[in-house]
Every structure is written in C-alpha cells, then in structure tokens.
C-alpha cells in the first residue's frame, strides 16, 4: 500500500536534505546570490577561471581527503609541494622533463611512505608526525636548492608546459585548461576509488573506528599507509601543474597550503574525525573557497578579505554539522 505523504514527512524530508546536503544547498545559494549581485560573476570565462585558480589546491585536497576520511591528518603536504615543485623544475633542465617528473614522483611517494609507515604501522599521532615531516621536508627543500629559487631556462620550448599552461579546447574566449581537466579527472578517478571499490569502503571503516575495523579483519595499518601514498601522489600531481604553470619555484611555495587544503576539505563538510566525507564534498569545498575569493575580488575587496570570510564560514559549517548530529545548537 502506498504511504500517504503528510506535510510532516515533506518537512522531514526537507530537513534531512538540508542536514545531509547542507553544504551543497549553501553553495548553490551562494552562487545564485553572487550571480545577481556581481556583474561579471556568472560568465563562463569567470567560472572557468575560478576552477583553474583552485585546481592545484584542489588536486592536493583530493589526496588529503583520503587521509582525513581514514581518520588522520596530513600537515606535510605544503612542504612536500615545495620540495616536489622545486625538484621537478630544477631537474627539468638537468635531466630532461620526463626523468624529472619520474624522480619527483619517486621522492614524493617516499615522503608519503614515511608518513604512512609512522602513522599506519607505528601508529603514531598523525598531527605530530606530519608536523615533524612539514619541518623535515621544508629543510630538505632548502638543502636541495641551497636556498635559491629555481626556474626553467627555455620556457617556450618544452612540452612540460602542457600541464600548467596547456589548453585542451579553445573556442572563442572559452578555454578548457589542462589544469582544470587534470583536477576534475583526478577527482573522478579518486572518487571511483573511494566510493566504488572495496579499498574505499575500508578507508571509511578504518576512519570510523580503527580498532573495530582491525577486529573485523581489516589490515588497518596498510590502509592508512595507502592513504598517505595517495596524498603524496596528489601532491606530486599538484607540483607538476604548479611547476609547469610558473616555470619556476620558490623554496617556500607550499607554505601554509596544508592549512588551506584542510580549510577547503572542512568547508566541504568532511569531518576531521574521520569515517565520513566524500570526494564530491571536497571538490565543492574547494570551489566554495575559490568562488568566495573571486566574488570578493570582483566586488573590489582586497585579497585578504576572503580570510575573514573563511574564518566565519569554516566555524559556521562545522558548527551546524556537529549541532545537527547532537540535535542541539549549543554544546553547553
């Protein structure tokens, strides 16, 4: 027998949509308000420009999402980005683009493996381990470069330029840039890995309750280890795009990126406690980050106005999330 839809259940359903997809609703509202209040906002060029601007941050955030859902943090991605970008740019002229990319891949994966071993197998506190690695990798970057900035000499004559500067489709004034494609492509691949494979389900299980997942026969240590490898791979991808785009690098290029990445992930609604979240949420969180910034700039505010807005929004987003879980607005 068909159940009769009462007004109450309709309201119930709305409430559950708001609870589960609150960020998405807020994001759509934000876009609508911004398109009405800002002239040049809702143009294809502008929207593509924003996605391009956040593509590197977003690429890294995709990898860190695995670590966070697995119940850990990765504060080392900023320094890792510095190291990888400096290496790929510096080695480009010395050993050629492809070897440079491969060496950088190996180095970032080793750094990720160190994180993964310490947090996964030795079960050390991830915040401190990756804080330590932040310092180690920043030091390694400076030792590698001797403190000097690096750049690629012949910038117009290398296929390496494709990752950061390439265009896939160019129609009129609409460009689909390679960084955007790489970011969204990696999002799709990692989204499938996280949400459609057994490995992905295990990441959620370990992040939700590591001890219980161990008792149910999951090799929690190995899964945590893998999440750090994925995070490192995402940093590698981000470094290739960044190095290719700038064709040079400062030694501290990734400083504070670890926290911006986390801010984007949190904005998307993924809990730092682990066990919940999604790739789509991270993409939305990063896009919110980018669109707020873009909207404020178009309105004539200085770039740092977005930091003030982010302050408010991060706390509000997480507050509403925890409040809906406990059923009360205030904790105390």
């Amino acid at each position: 027998m068909q159940q009769v839809q009462s007004p109450g259940s309709w309201r119930e359903r709305l409430r559950s949509i708001l609870r589960d997809q609150g960020i998405l609703v807020a994001f759509v509202l934000l876009l609508i308000v911004m398109s009405f209040t800002i002239d040049r906002f809702a143009t294809t060029e502008n929207i593509l420009a924003v996605i391009r601007q956040v593509s590197i941050l977003g690429t890294i955030a995709l990898g860190v999402t695995f670590v966070v859902i697995g119940g850990n943090l990765d504060l080392s991605v900023g320094s890792m980005l510095s190291l990888a970008t400096v290496m790929v740019v510096d080695l480009h002229d010395k050993i050629g683009p492809l070897p440079a990319i491969l060496v950088t891949l190996v180095v970032t994966l080793i750094a990720g493996a160190v994180n993964g071993t310490l947090v996964g197998f030795l079960r050390l506190n991830s915040l401190i381990v990756t804080l330590g690695m932040l310092s180690v990798l920043q030091g390694a970057t400076l030792l590698y470069s001797g403190g000097k900035n690096v750049d690629i000499a012949n910038q117009s004559d290398t296929w390496f330029a494709v990752f950061g500067r390439g265009r896939l489709i160019s129609m009129g004034n609409i460009d689909i840039n390679v960084p955007v494609v790489l970011f969204l492509g990696l999002a799709v691949v990692l989204g499938i890995v996280l949400h459609r494979t057994g490995f992905g389900r295990k990441v959620f299980a370990v992040g939700g309750n590591r001890i219980a997942s161990s008792y149910s026969g999951l090799r929690a240590s190995r899964i945590v280890f893998s999440t750090y490898l994925i995070s490192a791979f995402a940093v590698f991808a981000g470094a290739v795009i960044l190095g290719s785009r700038v064709m040079g690098s400062q030694n501290t290029v990734g400083q504070t990126w670890e926290l911006q990445v986390l801010a984007g992930i949190i904005l998307g609604g993924t809990s730092l406690l682990g066990g919940s979240g999604s790739i789509a949420k991270t993409v939305i969180g990063i896009l919110i980050f980018g669109f707020i910034n873009n909207g404020l700039l178009l309105l004539g505010f200085p770039f740092y106005a977005q930091w003030l807005v982010t302050w408010l929004v991060i706390i509000l987003v997480v507050w509403l999330d925890v409040a809906s879980k406990r059923g009360r607005l205030w904790a105390a």
Binding site: L127, L272, W307, W311, L312, W319, A331
Partner: peptide, 15 residues
C-alpha cells in the same frame, strides 16, 4: 559550539 579547537583556531589563524 563544540567545534574542535583545531578547526576553530585554524579559521582564526586565517581570519
């Protein structure tokens, strides 16, 4: 609010 201080002060750091 019951929000983890890591998140509260991460926001404050930027703000």
């Amino acid at each position: 609010t019951g929000v983890d201080s890591f998140i509260v002060t991460l926001g404050a750091m930027l703000g």
